[in-house]
Design a protein around this nucleic acid. Structure first.
Lengths: 206, 206
DNA sequence: AACTAAAACGACAGTTTGTTTATTATCTTA
DNA sequence: TAAGATAATAAACAAACTGTCGTTTTAGTT
């Protein structure tokens, strides 16, 4: 079994597999990919693949887990801060600065994020990412949304916000992530704070 | 080739295949399904499957197309009416009545919708459904969102709203669609009109 | 430079696939 | 209701992919 994670050969092989996976998901979607496809694209022997992963699902899981872990540990802790700031100056602009690490992370992992969130990607990953975002908003450090005065059940509020944000991110990545992360942070904030219809110019009153 | 769509045998077979597909997607996800799985579950001969569909992807496509067509032709024409109503009484409650056919359609097609939009479903279907919703909001009959005064680029507005709505629908279906369609229509409307943060009780001012 | 571990190679049986044949069952319609 | 048409079944096929092994070669580590 190939285990040593510092051995350059292992590092190289895993990188090649990962890159091949990303490219192939974008090309024909995860379900249409065979292990043979991956190893041919990565220029490695098929047997080598099986010494690192059980099958293509195992590979997918491990890649996603790594990504989500990074997302969670680096990004999510900021969300409570964000909501706190928002509460302070209620009518003011959103404190975008606190969102930036998240969007910069997405930008840095563009290709994989695009593949996973794209039309040929994985619906399960979207669910995991929503859970990740929701832990930030509804987690134990954060009693805000658990308070009274909600017009809607909390789980629908969470679904709405998380899905909306992921939707914008999908659109951003799908268009090649041309706009800088700050711009996307501003766009998302505007809609979540003021409501999408106000952002659309339909509801003028505030 | 088996073609006659009125022959009872054909109708029965296609129904069985479709039901098997839905059940299996929920159980192990589309990518893990084999044609053999489908025909065993449907209690039909494997050869029979191939006389109706090219492969499992063809089956999936045809089932989705049927669903989306129904969604589009029956539901989407109502959206312009909806926005018009919303503009009239700006601060009033959303005219939920006009949304009802859409949510009743979802409720009637619960099992398939749940399978397609669930964690083991198809990311491409979500994209198609978003496009369906967006055609309603940004279509030619409807110049509202093309007007000036947008705080954000229109495609991000569209992505935000469509994804948010689908997210709530996913949550609804995933929980067994316990709430009646009217309730979900009300919940979604509240968040889209007033903004999710207002609905959360965080932003009190209007 | 020697040691060690990873990668390549080639072979294996077991599945699934898509196609085709002949046979049986069942629907339509006259 | 009987005759003819056609859909479904059953069984067999090569081709492709899978997951696993044992052996040999290559390359990184010390």
């Amino acid at each position: 079994m190939s285990g040593n994670p510092t051995d350059l050969r292992v590092v190289r092989t895993k990188q090649a597999i990962r890159a091949a996976l990303i490219a192939l998901i974008e090309e024909k979607g995860f379900e249409a990919i065979s292990v043979k496809d991956i190893t041919e694209r990565a220029n490695i022997n098929r047997g080598t693949f099986y010494s690192h992963y059980e099958d293509k699902f195992d590979l997918m899981d491990k890649c996603q887990e790594q990504l989500l872990k990074e997302m969670e540990t680096k990004i999510v802790p900021n969300i409570p801060k964000l909501i706190e700031e928002t509460k302070k100056h209620e009518a003011g602009p959103m404190p975008i600065a606190v969102l930036m690490p998240f969007f910069e992370f997405l930008h840095a992992n563009q290709s994989f994020m695009k593949a996973l969130l794209g039309p040929k990607g994985d619906a399960a990953f979207q669910v995991k990412m929503k859970e990740c975002l929701n832990r930030g908003m509804f987690g134990p450090e954060n009693a805000i949304f658990n308070a009274d005065g909600l017009l809607v059940p909390p789980r629908y509020l969470a679904s709405y916000i998380a899905s909306a944000h992921i939707g914008v991110i999908q659109e951003w990545l799908n268009g090649g992530a041309i706009e800088p992360p700050e711009e996307i942070a501003r766009i998302i904030s505007a809609m979540t704070i003021h409501g999408p219809l106000f952002a659309a110019g339909i509801r003028k009153k505030r």
